[in-house]
Design a protein around this nucleic acid. Sequence first.
DNA 1: GAATGTTGATAATTAAAAATATCAACAATT
DNA 2: AATTGTTGATATTTTTAATTATCAACATTC
Lengths: 148, 148
Amino acid sequence: MEKPVDKHTPIYPIRTAAKLLGISVPTLRMYENEGLILPYKSPGNQRIYSEDDIERMRCIRNSIKELKISINGIKTIYSLIPCWEVVKCSEEDRKICKAFDSYHQPCWTFNHKNTICEGRDCRECDVYRNYSKCTEIKELIKKISGIK
Amino acid sequence: MEKPVDKHTPIYPIRTAAKLLGISVPTLRMYENEGLILPYKSPGNQRIYSEDDIERMRCIRNSIKELKISINGIKTIYSLIPCWEVVKCSEEDRKICKAFDSYHQPCWTFNHKNTICEGRDCRECDVYRNYSKCTEIKELIKKISGIK
DNA sequence: GAATGTTGATAATTAAAAATATCAACAATT
DNA sequence: AATTGTTGATATTTTTAATTATCAACATTC
């Protein structure tokens, strides 16, 4: 019996991931330090990437190389995702949530003490998983404004 | 009787504006070509900048130099402004509006044939005037999602 | 337990965006 | 009409973000 491997299951160690993407290992780790990606960490603290992670990285790579958006630009764009509408947090949550008032860091780079997000793995969160492209972000903004 | 000069009145020719900002004339024109700023044009097609324009440029300069957001990053961020909620355009307008489906160009860089924006001067529009900082953009996104 | 891969960190390099210089043609000012 | 400033365009330079190389310490695999 094989273990089922979907696109979200971590399978690639960092060197394989780097090879798949055609970039170096330090670059991959840099993107993580900047908060652009959240790879799974093994019990021994080693990064393991899923097919979804690879796809996300391709998108980020495209933003940098083709669209010429800088890393800080990407972070700022991610910080505009209306995460509060995705996770449906309460007004009290929003009052103390650093992400709600962040303009340059994506919400998944914060800890979420005392909010609905506390203890949740951002890697599993729709905010992180569904809005890696600015097309998707703008569509979300349209949706929450009551359109479509 | 003096003519009243508010912050929106064009007064500075390009060389003066460049001097005020500590940058060169070609740089100022480059920002305009990229769609970051819309200076007033004289009957002889010469650019004249208002105090508001200078302030806007300072903000853009800060984004580039301090926040390290690239020009294409700034354009992408501007394209996320929910302009349709500001100008209150109709569903029919949105259907044909290029800005509504743009992910990398601010709305004020398009022509707006057959929409509520047709013939309007984007320089006078709230979308252009009120949302030059990403703090303001995020606050607008909060507002249209029904918060505050 | 030996071989191979990963970690975080810093230093060095590369790539490319941002800014400037320069140009002849036109506009504004006196 | 002479002087000074502007225009759009292209070429060049400067700056700096992005990437890679390298390291000793630790983890994993067989």
